[in-house]
Nucleic acid binder design. Structure first.
Length: 182
DNA sequence: CTTACGATTCCCT
DNA sequence: GGGAATCGTAAGC
C-alpha cells in the first residue's frame, strides 16, 4: 500500500473512510489534516531530527509524537517529509478497551483523544501499517461529501485549507467553518 | 454557547 | 529556556 503515494493533500482526503485498528481497537477515519514537506506548520519543515525521523521514512508508516507534554498524535507518512494527522475516527471496534482507557468524554474526537483510546505508545512511532495488530485499510469506495477547512492549532501557514472531514458524521474534533451562503 | 488557562514532556534554538 | 499539530475544566455571555 502507498508504494507510490499521492501528494499529501490527496492522501489526507483519501484516508477519509479508511479503517484503522491498533491492537484490536479502532474504526473509520473521519477527519484528517495534511502536512507537506515545504510547509512551515509541518514538523518536517526544518529537515530530519530525532523526533520527526519517521516522517522521512517509508510511506504508510506511523509517525507518532508527543504534543504539549501530554498527548500523543498519530500521523500516516506519505512521501518523504509528508504526513497526514489523524484527527478523529468513528470508533466501532474494541469499544470496551477504548472506554477503559478513556472512561469519560469523547472517545476518538481529537488527535490526543484517539491516540489515548487506541492505546498508542511512543514506541509505536515508525511502525508499518499492515501487520495484524496495526492495520490501515483504504476505503472501497470514495467517501461522500467532504468538509474542508483550515488546520487546527497551528500558527504558521494557518490559511492553508488542508483539514478534511466527512460531512454529516458525528464525532469530529471541532466543527468546520460554515460555507458561505449564497 | 464561547473563551481562557494550566498541565507536562521533549526537542530545538 | 521557549514553545508546541491538545485536553479538560471553569467561568462568562
Amino acid at each position: 500500500m502507498l508504494s507510490d503515494p499521492p501528494d499529501v493533500v490527496a492522501l489526507a482526503r483519501g484516508l477519509l473512510g479508511a479503517r484503522l485498528t491498533v491492537r484490536g481497537a479502532g474504526g473509520l477515519i473521519i477527519e484528517t489534516e495534511a502536512y507537506a514537506r515545504d510547509d512551515p506548520a509541518s514538523h518536517s519543515y526544518r529537515g530530519p531530527t530525532p523526533r520527526n525521523r519517521a516522517m522521512f521514512g517509508p510511506a504508510g508508516h506511523a509517525y507518532i509524537y508527543r504534543i504539549y507534554g501530554l498527548h500523543l498524535c498519530l500521523n500516516v507518512v506519505g512521501r518523504p517529509g509528508e504526513a497526514v494527522l489523524i484527527r478523529a475516527i468513528w470508533p466501532d471496534t474494541g469499544l470496551e478497551a477504548m472506554r477503559a482507557r478513556r472512561p469519560t468524554g469523547a472517545l476518538c474526537a481529537g488527535p490526543g483523544r484517539l491516540a489515548q483510546a487506541l492505546g498508542l505508545q511512543l514506541g509505536d512511532d515508525g511502525r508499518a501499517f499492515g501487520e495484524a495488530d496495526f492495520t490501515l485499510t483504504l476505503p472501497d469506495q470514495p467517501p461522500g461529501a467532504v468538509l474542508v477547512g483550515p488546520r487546527i492549532g497551528i500558527r504558521l501557514a494557518a490559511d492553508r485549507p488542508w483539514r478534511f472531514g466527512l460531512a454529516g458524521v458525528e464525532g469530529l474534533s471541532r466543527p468546520f467553518p460554515t460555507p458561505p451562503r449564497v
